[in-house]
Each structure stands twice: as C-alpha cells, then as structure tokens.
C-alpha cells in the first residue's frame, strides 16, 4: 500500500490536504479559518483532479504546430484536458462561495461582534431571554 501511495503521491497529498481542509471547516470555531479551510479543501480536490489528468511525458493541451502549417492532433501528445476544464469551473465556484461566506461573516460580526457561530448563538439566546422577560414584564404591567 505504501508503495502505491508513493506512486500516487500527488493524489495522496491532495487527500491529506483535503482532510486538513475538512477538519478546519468542521472544527475551527473562527469563521475566517473555516473559510480558509474550505479553500484549502477545494484546491486540494482540484489538485487531485489535475493530477488525475496528468500523463507522463505529454504536453499541455494546447495544439502544437507541426512545422508545415498543420496541427499535431494526435491524442498521444497531450495530457487530459477534461480535469483542467472542470477545475477552471471549480475555481470560479470556490471564489464565489468564498466571497459570499466572507460577506455573511462580516454581517455576523456587525451584529454580534464575534467570529464564532456558537458565541453568536449564546448571545442570541441570552438576548432573546432578556427580551422575553421584558415582554413578560410589560404584559404584567398592562394586566395590572
């Protein structure tokens, strides 16, 4: 197994990186770090894909001229272009998601003054309790 891991070293590294990213996304309490973790995970997956497209000794998927005005279009010359296409799409997706998540994070910070969702939850529940007790008081006053 270890030999095969050495053979597939790009994929192994990508998998470890995506594991670390996933840990960050799940475990970190700080939202900014969560989002960095998300980015690490995404790029790791893209590394995995790009490594899967690579073929030993072939050129990048841009057609080369054959010297007499034609194009070399034998499939044995170029690496697999599909992963590159998928990753290009994926990068756009992850930058959009990052921007959106950061915007929400800033908004959360505006409201709660914290970057930790749990602390925000705590603040919210406490405030709700205060609000409810206030409402109860007000209702009692009205009744009285």
């Amino acid at each position: 197994m270890l030999e095969k891991l050495f053979l597939n070293h790009y994929e192994a590294a990508a998998v470890i990186l995506s594991g670390i990213g996933l840990t960050n996304l799940l475990l970190q309490r700080n939202l900014i770090k969560k989002i960095i973790g998300l980015n690490i995970m995404d790029t790791a997956v893209y590394l995995f894909l790009a490594a899967k497209g690579y073929v030993e000794g072939r050129a990048a998927p841009i057609l080369l001229e054959n010297g007499s005005g034609g194009w070399l279009n034998s499939a044995n010359l170029y690496v697999n272009p599909v992963p590159a296409g998928l990753v290009l799409t994926g990068i756009v997706v992850s930058v959009s998601v990052t921007a959106f998540a950061l915007a929400l994070t800033l908004k959360l910070y505006e409201y709660y003054g914290t970057l930790n969702i749990d602390e925000a939850l705590m603040k919210m529940t406490q405030e709700q309790q205060e609000l409810e007790s206030k409402i109860d008081d007000a209702e009692e006053e009205v009744l009285a």
Partner: peptide, 18 residues
C-alpha cells in the same frame, strides 16, 4: 435582515459547504 437570519444562513452555508 437581522441578526438571527444571518447566523442561521451562515450555519446553513457552512454545513452545505461541507
């Protein structure tokens, strides 16, 4: 708009991203 929806949306987003 509001604090609660922002928090809920973030939580939803993080879970969805996982």
């Amino acid at each position: 708009e509001g604090a609660e929806t922002t928090r809920a949306a973030l939580r939803y987003l993080v879970m969805s991203l996982v």
